[in-house]
Amino acid sequence: MLKYIGKRLLLMIPVILGISFILFTIMDLTPGDPARVILGDFASQAEIDALREEMGLNDNFFVRYGRYIGNAVTGDLGNSYRSSAPVVEEIAARFPSTLKIALLAMLFAVLIGIPVGIISAVKQYSIADISSTMLALLFTSIPAFWLGLLLILLFSVRLRLLPAVGSDTWKHMLMPSISLAAAQMATIIRMTRSTMLEVIRQDYIRTAKAKGAAPRRVIFHHAIKNALLPVITTVGLSISNLLGGALIIENVFGISGLGTLMVNSVKSKDTPLLIGSVMFAAVVAGLVNLGVDVLYTYVDPRIKAQFVKKKK
């Protein structure tokens, strides 16, 4: 098992290198001079030239990329052009808000999505099933930012129950995470429903019934574990959607998280900050997916058998 985890961690290295290379290239190709960004509009050409020389901007592209990666390996992602603070610190300051929203959104999506999906499958074609299907359709169709705006209109403007902007208390987190969760919840509902429908038609479910097991036991003891496998995959994949979605949602709710950091760094051509934060998000997504794969082995003995040699 440890060997497998190690292998997966090693596999993340080329992925991250690839991401950094693409970003580095794009940022290099776009117009705009970092030295001018740092020094401002009133700096003289001589000052800019001096700074360019100092920062090594006149070096060959590959030399600069190599230098960046070399520093990154030691944990130094460079300094932000705008604030001149280390990129690592900037990310550390912003990430907790994003993480809170994403986790809360995930929690909503899973805790509501899975039970609704199961009920929907067990009571196929019932009123509950039809309404959950419609709900899921609605949630996948609504863009997160628009749902966020509607929530602000209702809960902040009309009812004056929840604050519209900021990220200080759990109350601030509620609306952003719900708007973020909606689409994921819909996916999880649909996924749970379809896999559950498939599982409850399996022969082993009939075997369980033939033993005299009650419907509740058949669902909870025999069906759920089998049905959850694809759902876990979906949940794992949705983490990257959540991080991506946070980008928009944070702007809607004025939260200073990783998303706003990325957007601002693009606007100000703050190359180190952008590459650093995107790479960080990629690492998080990679780790979550690794966690999901490890989780698999606890649910399905067949997958576990591939990694673990038999004891004895």
């Binding site: 022969d203 082993y204 009939r206 033939a210 033993k211 089998n226 399905d300």
Partner: peptide, 18 residues
């Protein structure tokens, strides 16, 4: 399961994999 029980056709799929 107690008075009457049944053996199904395909043993490959009759047992719960997990």
């Amino acid at each position: 399961g107690e008075t009457v029980s049944m053996i199904f056709q395909d043993p490959m799929t009759s047992l719960n994999p997990v």
